[in-house]
Design a binder for these strands. Structure first.
Length: 487
RNA sequence: GCUCCGGUGGUGUAGUCCGGCCAAUCAUUUCGGCCUUUCGAGCCGAAGACUCGGGUUCGAAUCCCGGCCGGAGCACCA
């Protein structure tokens, strides 16, 4: 008789915030972020980099940045510099950087071992022929070559012409997914590599170099997009041939972002055509663009952590990004006046002379001090704000607007309140500074800002009252240029 | 077409493995109110979801089957 089942079920004890707990070991974990250096990092990369970094941080593991530059056609040289910069922006620091282009001899070594084991073979069929056979679950003639024949061809491999031969890893020629059947491990590439020049003509395919490296570098967990699902299956065969233990694989879903082309190649094309101002054009989804728009890296980090690593797709909305970002930006951004499409006005009947008005830099942090605005009965107002009725020029006077006529009504705030005057921003006529705000769609708002804006530095975040948050991007002779973040 | 994977409020998530404590969590969003010399912040309140249909079960977001919808892969790219 069976003993009573006294085993107490372990009930839902985990309450991880954001990321689900990692399967497998939690001791000495090793993870990697492995981008192809085809451009700077974008949000899609953050989706890979952040969870890796976060898991490593939680478990005090090791994070490897591995640059996957095994296709010379897809290497954009500046990316070698940009990738670590972008990671740093995200607050991620890899413990080690590996360049796959440094490791060709290692790949050759394992390729040869595979041949010797009879687990890989040199295939001289042309692609179409092989595909035809493969799609019908038929092995190609090369599959039966002896180890000796294969080794001989392997030695001759570097002298062959492009397309003449490839090295294939034996899988299951009847695998139900044709993509898995006897995949290519090595191919001939006669193209100059930014880091290798023409040193090699035999290049590993991603599935091969990735699996070899993941094993050799001691990866315990591999986090990758679900577009790699089939690749994981392919690589499984390599692990089996070599008698290696598989790391834990986790496949996450696609990330879509509202109104943004995440594709690096499209961005590159647009930049070359001059449609975009550069990798940090506000319309792009690069981290550089987000940074330029005043998105705090913590916004992206926490958003990605929240999205987690589940395999369903997610679409991130700007509303969500802005909402999160506001939490970070709001306390640090000092307030200033900006008027778009300024119209110079005179408040008829105002006769209190010239007064200096002080306003706090931040209403909730008065210790930061005040900025000063000069009021003498004239001002610039935003064209949009000039509508019939009573308005209060904030902290100055209340005025009645009637067509082009603007006349003094009163001064006290209480009067404004009792008359339900709309409070609007204004800029002194005597002292002001031209300001341009580049909007997320690339358009530019032109106007005037209060003179204290001159004290700001590039990178400072501000809030233009009633307009929104913006980041000071550049100070030119013409104007101070901001990039708009959000309301 | 074939091979896989997935579907919880507008959006992102928790819960699904091990059915009941889920009349479903949290964030963002939206809408009210309070406060405030910003349309920001803060405070209070509210709105809003288990893709559909069957089945199993005393009981299903959770298990099974089918439909629908979405996605990925099907390279000598990564």
């Amino acid at each position: 008789m069976e003993k009573y089942d006294v085993e107490v079920k372990e009930k839902k004890t985990k309450k991880e915030v954001g990321l689900q707990e990692l399967p497998g070991t939690h001791e000495n974990i090793v993870m990697r972020f492995a981008p192809n250096p085809s451009g700077p990092l974008h949000v899609g990369h953050a989706r890979a980099a952040v969870p890796n970094a976060e898991y490593v941080k939680r478990h005090d593991g090791k994070l490897i940045l591995r640059i996957e530059d095994t296709d010379p056609k897809r290497v954009y040289e500046p990316a070698y510099e940009m990738i670590p910069e972008d990671l740093e922006w995200l607050g991620i620091k890899a413990d080690e950087i590996i360049y796959q282009s440094d490791r060709f001899e290692t790949y050759y070594d394992y390729a040869k071992q595979l041949i010797e084991k009879g687990a890989a073979y040199m295939c001289t069929c042309d692609g179409a022929t092989f595909k035809e056979l493969k799609d019908n679950c038929k092995p190609c003639p090369c599959r039966d070559n002896s180890v000796e024949e294969n080794l001989e061809l392997w030695e001759k491999f570097p002298e062959m012409d492009v397309g003449e031969a490839v090295l294939r890893v034996k899988t299951d020629i009847e695998h139900k997914n044709p993509a898995i059947r006897d995949w290519v491990a090595m191919r001939i590439v006669k193209e100059s590599h930014p880091r290798l020049g023409d040193k090699y003509s035999i290049y590993p395919m991603m599935n091969f170099s990735v699996a070899v490296d993941d094993h050799l570098l001691g990866l315990t967990h591999v986090l990758r997009g679900k577009d790699h699902l089939a690749n994981t299956e392919k690589q499984k065969y390599l692990y089996e041939h070599m008698g290696w233990e598989m790391p834990e694989f986790i496949h996450y879903g696609r990330l879509k972002m509202e109104d943004i082309a995440l594709s690096t190649s499209k961005a590159m094309e647009g930049i070359e055509k001059g449609e975009y101002s550069g990798w940090d054009d506000p319309r792009l989804g690069t981290l550089k663009a987000l940074a330029r728009r005043g998105i705090d890296p913590r916004t992206i980090y926490s958003l990605i952590t929240e999205i987690g690593v589940k395999s369903s797709d997610s679409a991130i909305s700007w509303k969500k990004i802005h909402g999160l970002n506001r939490n970070y930006i709001e306390p640090i951004a000092n307030r200033y006046f900006f008027v778009e499409n300024p119209v110079e006005i005179t408040v008829d009947g105002y006769d209190d002379g010239e007064v200096t008005i002080e306003r706090p830099l931040h209403a909730d942090h008065t210790d930061r001090g005040n900025r000063k605005l000069l009021f003498d009965g004239t001002a610039y107002l935003a064209k949009e704000d000039i509508n019939d009725g009573i308005v209060r020029l904030m902290d100055a006077v209340n005025a009645d607007i009637s067509g082009d006529n603007i006349s003094y009504n009163s001064t006290s705030f209480e009067d404004a309140r009792s008359q339900k005057a709309k409070i609007i921003q204004w800029v002194p006529v005597k002292e002001n500074v031209p300001v341009k705000i580049v909007m997320p769609d690339g358009s530019v708002k032109k106007g005037l800002g209060e003179v204290d804006i001159k004290e700001l530095k590039v990178g400072d975040m501000v809030q233009f009252e009633r307009v929104g948050f913006a980041r000071l991007d550049e100070i030119t002779d013409d104007a101070i240029i901001f990039y708009f973040a959000h309301k």
